[in-house]
């Protein structure tokens, strides 16, 4: 039997381009992710907030571990903090190979608090907070123009 898992992480972007180019770069990352994820049955969501990638990925555990490893080897980000890596019963983003929750100038999470935390419960709470935020933002985006992403 193959288990479903979900992983949430926050990482600092290495993209140093001006804001409009950052948008192009993030869109390019998103398109590649959507294409690759579809082939291995991974779904999830991405938010670019205050120079940080905030991402939730879900899929079969083996595929997810491999994908996460590939993401680790990407030099476009650094200082990766995993909020949780759990088994799940059902997907939270089953309609999206990679939903986009938008680009925000200011970081909406207490990133320093998250990085400094050694408390797994606090990290998990931060992860749940991210999950809720992503769902909320994606709903907002749906009302806008999803086809442009």
């Amino acid at each position: 039997m193959t288990w479903l898992s979900q992983i949430a992480y926050i990482s600092k972007s290495n993209l140093t381009a001006p804001p409009n180019q950052v948008k192009d770069n993030v869109t390019s990352i998103l398109r590649t992710a959507q294409s690759n994820n579809a082939t291995i049955g991974v779904t999830g969501a991405l938010l670019y907030s205050g120079g940080y990638f905030c991402q939730v990925l879900e899929g079969e555990t083996d595929n997810l571990e491999e994908l996460f490893e590939t993401i680790q080897m990407d030099s476009r980000h650094k200082e990766i903090t995993v909020l949780y890596f759990d088994q799940i019963d059902e997907r939270g983003f089953s309609d999206w190979s990679m939903a986009f929750a938008g680009i925000e100038e200011a970081m909406r999470f207490d990133i320093q608090g998250i990085k400094d935390s050694t408390d797994q419960v606090a990290m998990r709470d931060a992860g749940r907070d991210l999950l809720t935020t992503l769902h909320h933002l994606i709903q907002q985006h749906q009302g806008l123009d999803r086809s442009t992403l």
Binding site: S5, I7, Y9, T61, L64, E65, F68, E69, Q72, M73, K78, I80, T81, V82, F85, D86, Q87
Partner: peptide, 14 residues
């Protein structure tokens, strides 16, 4: 130092 110290996700352990 950068890449070898990035998280490894295996069997629900980070």
């Amino acid at each position: 130092l950068d890449f070898s110290q990035r998280p490894i996700a295996l069997e629900h352990e980070v």
